[in-house]
Simulated scan of single mutants.
Amino acid sequence: MSGRDLLGIFNLLIVAGVVAAVSYLALTLRPAEYDADTLCIAGIVPPHRVVIIDKTDLYSTQQAAVIERIILTQRDTLAVGERLSLFELDESGRLDATNQFSLCNPGSGDQVNPLYRNPDRIQARYEFLFDAPLQQALADLVVPKDAPQSPILEALAELAQEPSMAQTVPGRRIILVSDMLQNSEIFSVYGRSRGAVFDRLPPVADTVEAIREEYGLALAGVVLEIYLIERRGWESEQNGALRTYWAQVFNQLGVTMSWNVQPTDALS
């Protein structure tokens, strides 16, 4: 075999290597297909983050502003492909999807690979398809309403039974903005004439059993972040006995809970 033949073979190998590399990059960098309705990657169950605003009590203008910032922080910390849904516990005690907002983060301009996708175009798509509907939902979400019932625990358990929040869904996270003043058939924090908090609440085991009988183990494995809205005259109980009670209930239900206080003085 002549030197020219060897050089030709060598060149062919180089060309084949380049073609293979380009093909590999095209496959690995090619944008995934998205579901047109949810913006989620087709064929993949995404992690799901749900924000619930308890609207069964009135909020001040300052509190509404804080709630909006909490939601926008959740938006800004979403991973590409992670789903964000907004719900409200309304004045009738129902858990409603706010403006039917439940979308996956398709990626903003600074979250994409500029070698393969145009960041400006992706940012425009993000703002039009994801952020604009979110802003529209926010306009109503922070408008408070007063209500005779506040079935907080039941609402959480009901949500965890939804297919999009089932135990097969990875990364189930609920961000709950509430005063945590439960008022339902399972238990009510009201009625101070009945004595101290633990005297007027059922045993933790009874509350847990009531939830399990109705909703099974739906809440097990959920990560719950509570943003507590303090109420004047309730602060000591909210941050004392009630917090302890909630912690025990969620622990026995298999929920990982964190507690973030939004002080009354800073919000009103």
Rank of each mutant, 00 (worst) to 15 (best):
Gln111Ala: 10
Asp57Thr: 15
Glu82Cys: 02
Val169Gln: 01
Phe187His: 12
Arg69Asp: 08
Leu89Tyr: 09
Pro148Ser: 12
Leu7Ser: 11
Ile52Asp: 02
Leu39His: 03
Ala16Pro: 04
Thr61Ser: 14
Gln74Thr: 03
Leu156Val: 04
Glu214Gly: 09
Gly221Thr: 07
Thr38Lys: 02
Trp234Pro: 03
Val197Trp: 05
Ser92Pro: 05
Val142Lys: 00
Ser258Asn: 11
Val249Gln: 04
Tyr24Val: 08
Phe87Asp: 01
Leu134Val: 02
Val51Lys: 00
Met165Ser: 03
Ile229His: 07
Tyr245Trp: 13
Arg83Glu: 03
Ile174Pro: 02
Gln135Trp: 11
Asp199Ile: 02
Asn113Val: 07
Ala21Thr: 15
Glu237Thr: 08
Ile152Asp: 05
Asp199Gly: 03
Cys104Val: 09
Tyr215Phe: 14
Gln238Arg: 11
Asp76Pro: 02
Glu185Cys: 04
Arg125Asn: 05
Val204Ser: 03
Gly17Cys: 05
Glu82Ser: 03
Glu225His: 06
Glu127Ser: 04
Ala65Asn: 05
Arg194Glu: 14
Arg231Met: 10
Met1Gln: 10
Thr264Asn: 12
Asp265Cys: 11
Ala157Asn: 07
Asn99Cys: 05
Pro170Phe: 12
Ile44Arg: 15
Glu235Leu: 09
Arg194Gln: 15
Ile14Ser: 00
Ile226Trp: 01
Val80Asp: 04
Phe130Glu: 00
Arg212Gly: 01
Pro144Gly: 06
Ser188Gln: 08
Pro203His: 10
His48Thr: 10
Arg212Leu: 04
Trp234Val: 07
Phe250Ser: 03
Gln238Val: 11
Ala124Asp: 08
Gln63Val: 12
Gly254Pro: 06
Glu154Thr: 10
Gly93Thr: 06
Leu78Asp: 02
Gln123Phe: 08
Ala97Ser: 06
Ile67Leu: 05
Asp54Lys: 15
Ser178Gly: 13
Leu228Asn: 10
Tyr126Cys: 00
Asp57Val: 11
Ser268Val: 14
Leu176Ser: 02
Asp140Glu: 15
Phe187Pro: 08
Ser236Asp: 12
Asp120Met: 13
Leu201Pro: 03
Thr244Phe: 09
Ser193Arg: 06
Ser23Val: 11
Val112Gln: 05
Ala79Tyr: 12
Arg49Gly: 01
Gln62His: 13
Glu185Ser: 11
Ser188Asn: 10
Arg172Thr: 02
Glu237Gln: 13
Asp90Asn: 15
Gly3Leu: 08
Thr56Asn: 13
Pro47Val: 03
Tyr245Thr: 09
Ala36Pro: 09
Asp96Pro: 02
Asp37Leu: 13
Leu153Trp: 04
Leu86Asn: 00
Asp37Tyr: 09
Val51Met: 03
Ala139Leu: 13
Glu82Asp: 05
Arg4Ile: 08
Cys104Ile: 06
Asp179Gly: 12
Pro203Lys: 08
Val222Ala: 01
Arg4Asn: 11
Ala42Ile: 13
Ala266Leu: 15
Arg231Pro: 06
Val112Leu: 11
Arg117Glu: 12
Ala97Tyr: 02
Gln63Ile: 09
Phe130Thr: 03
Val18Lys: 06
Gly240Ser: 13
Ser150Lys: 10
Asp35Thr: 12
Gln238Pro: 10
Ser236Trp: 09
Ala137Asp: 01
Gln238Gly: 08
Gln248Met: 14
Gly93Leu: 06
Asp35Arg: 12
Gly191Cys: 08
Leu267Met: 10
Arg192Glu: 14
